[in-house]
């Protein structure tokens, strides 16, 4: 007996909903951009400069008392958040303190850190500081640039590779799907105000990798079917390709989501934001492979000349590595 996520043969008309889904995607993207513009992103110190101090104590965290202790130091904008995690024991009370970048100093001065630590230990002598991280404004500016370049370079490289292996319409479709995924991810980060730092950029690039993986598998089948069914309308070939690869799509998403859920539940709070981004990206990426990438290809149309034997790919399409 086998577990089947979908019946062996399906003939679901995926493309029937293409207008609805495409509309929904456009609305979701616009909404993400608006949320982003209005709420902004909760940038971490990687991008904003400043200092974060993680505190751990056997006593309960008292955010108000911490704040009162730090106020006399006049450090500017200070945020104190308590961190909760199911992996913490009863005597692990963790808080995260973030201090804005100080005027005129590249990174935090040792005196500032010593003063902060002393002030907090007045409140709670059992307090320890498992991590202290400080990034100067100079580096953070560069990190933003590098991050943007990384995302841009990835998109360009993929655009080029898909164009080489398939046709330009596919390439445009794939990129549209990727941009869709990235925008929606940024939107969610803005909406939930999850900390956005370098690891998030790595997560976004991973999402791009996962999503393109998914898109390519469906495109590959589409390319094959376009050769097999030369006379069938494009939309039907697409439906067929999605149906044929559906079981695989769900299996792979399923195993990946299983692994990620394990990580999000048990992997500790330090990487939760990172894993959440990837998890969200897997869901969105799976959806966008079917509805965004193919919709765009459908709109652009694919040139199909029934006389030529291998018209559905470019000259590189038959190279198997």
């Amino acid at each position: 007996m086998r577990l089947r996520l979908v019946p062996d043969e399906t003939h679901w008309d995926f493309m029937k909903w293409r207008h609805w889904t495409f509309g929904a995607s456009v609305i979701a993207m616009v909404a993400s951009l608006i949320i982003w513009a209005v709420m902004g992103l909760n940038f971490g110190i990687d991008f904003l400069g400043g200092t974060t101090i993680r505190t751990e104590s056997t006593q309960a965290v008292d955010v108000g008392a911490y704040r009162a202790a730090l106020d006399p130091l006049a450090l500017g904008d200070v945020t104190i958040t308590e961190v909760f995690d199911p992996t913490f024991g009863p005597d692990e009370n963790v808080a995260q303190i973030r201090i804005q970048a100080q005027e005129g100093a590249e990174s935090v001065t040792p005196e500032t850190i010593a003063a902060v630590e002393a002030a907090l230990q007045q409140v709670d002598p059992s307090l320890t500081f498992p991590s202290v991280e400080s990034v100067g404004p100079k580096v953070s500016g560069e990190l933003i640039m590098t991050a943007l370049i990384a995302v841009g370079a990835s998109l360009a490289a993929i655009l080029f590779y898909i164009w080489l292996r398939f046709e330009w319409q596919f390439s445009v479709g794939a990129i549209a799907a990727l941009i869709h995924d990235v925008v929606l991810t940024v939107g969610v980060f803005s909406l939930l105000q999850i900390r956005f730092d370098l690891a998030t950029i790595a997560a976004i690039l991973t999402i791009i990798g996962y999503s393109i993986n998914d898109t390519v598998v469906i495109f590959d089948r589409l390319r094959e079917n376009l050769i097999k069914f030369k006379k069938t309308p494009l939309i039907e070939v697409m439906n067929r390709s999605v149906n044929e690869t559906l079981s695989r799509t769900l299996m792979t998403s399923g195993t990946t989501i299983l692994a990620l859920v394990a990580l999000i539940a048990l992997g500790g709070d330090v990487i939760r934001g990172f894993v959440f981004a990837i998890l969200w990206g897997v869901v969105v990426g799976t959806y966008s492979s079917v509805y965004v990438a193919k919709n765009v290809v459908l709109m652009l149309g694919v040139e199909r000349d029934p006389k030529k034997p291998s018209d559905a790919g470019t000259q590189f399409a038959d190279i198997d590595a």
Partner: peptide, 22 residues
Amino acid sequence: VDANITTFIIAVILFALGSGPV
């Protein structure tokens, strides 16, 4: 092959531009 090469491209870019944990 196609699916893995694209993901590999991402890994290379991450390596080239990233630092530390990334």
